[in-house]
């Protein structure tokens, strides 16, 4: 995969959350996730960007790493460099397959699990520790000054517990666009999304869309 530098006009372009989610879904599927989990990936990335967190960056790194076949399926034990998928685990948490409070080692790109915790917690914040980093998470967003620091964690232990004392800081700003600086991430995810596209053949060009009749009349 090579990433070409953005064209001049990309400096001015931004992405809608809808197309960002659609890209995340296709990229997750292209990287091998089942459709249902790919859809959850779209939700997670869209939620993170809407709440001011660079979900596309985390997803880019995660899908690149995921190629190495070091995923561990819950409830098998993850040790060493073997990790859990943050989307599969986040989804299981939101579904209620895991208890409210828990502690799990070796979650890859743990920021991607936060939208699922947020959704389950509703308006009442819960405390999420990613290794040493303490965040408070609710459906209103991630209440922490360290959310960008959390993005730096490739892999962490995640502990979810009731929030005894949520910090008094304003909820993060909600946004509706993904800024032009994510051009590189978008390009990288397009590479994975491309794996869901069937290469064209002469046959499919003609038959796949049902052409054949004159369309210039």
């Amino acid at each position: 995969m090579t990433i070409t530098p953005p064209p001049d006009d990309a400096r001015h372009s931004s992405w809608s959350l809808g197309e960002t989610a659609a890209l995340a879904i296709k990229a997750a599927r292209g990287a091998g996730m089942p459709w249902g989990l790919a859809d959850e990936t779209g939700f997670a990335v869209s939620w993170l960007h809407a709440h001011g967190i660079a979900g596309l960056s985390a997803l880019c790194r995660y899908l690149s790493w995921r190629h190495n076949d070091r995923l561990t399926q819950w409830p098998d034990h993850a040790t060493g460099d073997r990790c859990y998928c943050p989307i599969a685990l986040g989804t299981a948490y939101l579904d209620g397959a895991l208890p409210d409070s828990l502690s799990i080692n070796n979650i890859r790109e743990p920021v991607l699990i936060l939208p699922f915790i947020a959704k389950r917690s509703g308006a009442r914040p819960v405390q999420v520790n990613l290794d040493q980093l303490c965040l408070h998470v609710s459906e209103n967003g991630v209440l922490s000054r360290y959310q960008d620091t959390a993005l730096l964690l490739n892999q962490a232990a995640c502990t979810i517990s009731p929030a005894a004392d949520p910090p008094v800081i304003p909820p993060p700003m909600q946004t509706q666009r993904v800024a032009s600086c994510f051009y590189g991430c978008v390009t990288a995810l397009q590479y994975f999304a491309g794996k869901t596209y069937a290469p064209a053949t002469d046959e499919s060009r003609l038959a796949g869309a049902g052409a054949g009749l004159n369309d210039n009349d």
Partner: peptide, 18 residues
Amino acid sequence: KPIASFLLAHPEHRHIIR
């Protein structure tokens, strides 16, 4: 059992359970 336990074991059926 709750459907959550099935979905954890069988994510390939998640889209149709939705």
